[in-house]
C-alpha cells in the first residue's frame, strides 16, 4: 500500500464524495416529492392520474438506473433535450426513487385501518384534517423502515453516475486506476469513502427500525 499516493489523492476523493452526497441528497428529495404525489394519487384513487402513476411505477421499477441514465443523457439530446450530467443524474435518481418511495408510502398508508378515517370524519374532522392529524402521522412512521432502506438503496445507486461522466467516487477510482495503475490504493479509498457515507445512514436506519418495532405494539 502506497500511503503517499493515498495522501495525494485524498482531496480528489473528498470532492468526489461531496458530489456523490450532493447529487444523492437532491435526487432523493425529488424522489420523495414524486413518491408522495404518486402515493396520494393512488390513495385517493384519482382517475386517469392513477393509471399514469401505475404505468410509471412499473416502468421505473423494472428497468435499471444505468439504462435510464443512458437514455436520458445520450438518447434524449437527439430530440433536442440537452441536459448537463448533474441534471441527468438527479432526474434519473428521482425517476427511479420516486416509485420506490411511492410504494413505501402507499404500504404505510394501507396499514392504517379505514375505521380510523371514518372515526375521524364522524368526529367532525374534514377530509384534510383527518389526513393531516390522524392518517399521515401514523402512515409516515409506519413507512420509516422502508423509507430508510430506500435512501440507502438510492445512495448506492449513485455509483452508476460514473457512466455519464460525473466525477463521483466510482469514476474517481476508475480514473486513477487508468491514470496511475494504483489499483489497490484506489479501491481502498473507494471502499473507505463509501463506508463513511453509507455506514451512518445504515446505523441510523437500524436504530429507527428498532424504535418503530417498540412503537408498533399489538401487531
Amino acid at each position: 500500500m502506497n500511503w503517499d499516493f493515498i495522501a495525494e489523492y485524498l482531496p480528489m476523493y473528498e470532492r468526489a464524495a461531496i458530489l456523490t452526497v450532493k447529487l444523492g441528497v437532491i435526487g432523493i428529495v425529488f424522489a420523495i416529492l414524486v413518491g408522495l404525489i404518486c402515493a396520494m394519487i393512488q390513495y385517493h384513487k384519482i382517475p386517469v392520474a392513477r393509471q399514469i402513476v401505475a404505468v410509471y411505477i412499473e416502468l421505473s421499477r423494472n428497468t435499471p438506473l444505468l439504462v435510464q441514465l443512458f437514455f436520458i443523457y445520450y438518447g434524449l439530446p437527439k430530440l433536442g433535450a440537452n441536459l448537463s450530467p448533474e441534471v441527468c443524474g438527479i432526474i434519473g435518481l428521482a425517476f427511479l426513487g420516486g416509485s420506490y418511495m411511492a410504494e413505501s408510502f402507499r404500504s404505510g398508508l394501507e396499514t392504517i385501518a379505514p375505521i380510523q378515517r371514518e372515526s375521524a370524519l364522524s368526529l367532525g374532522m374534514t377530509n384534510r384534517q383527518a389526513m393531516q392529524y390522524i392518517i399521515l402521522p401514523q402512515a409516515v412512521s409506519m413507512s420509516v423502515p422502508a423509507f430508510v432502506a430506500n435512501v440507502i438503496f438510492l445512495l448506492k445507486e449513485t455509483s452508476v453516475f460514473s457512466a455519464i461522466s460525473l466525477m463521483d467516487l466510482m469514476f474517481t477510482a476508475k480514473d486513477l486506476i487508468g491514470l496511475y495503475y494504483k489499483t489497490i490504493e484506489s479501491l481502498f479509498l473507494l471502499v473507505v469513502f463509501y463506508l463513511i457515507i453509507l455506514l451512518p445512514v445504515s446505523i441510523l436506519g437500524s436504530l429507527l427500525e428498532r424504535r418503530m418495532r417498540h412503537a408498533g405494539f399489538g401487531s
Partner: peptide, 12 residues
C-alpha cells in the same frame, strides 16, 4: 455486502 454498492463489489 449490503452496504457496498454492487458496482464497488464488482470492481473489488
Amino acid at each position: 455486502i449490503r452496504i457496498m454498492p454492487q458496482l464497488v463489489l464488482l470492481f473489488i
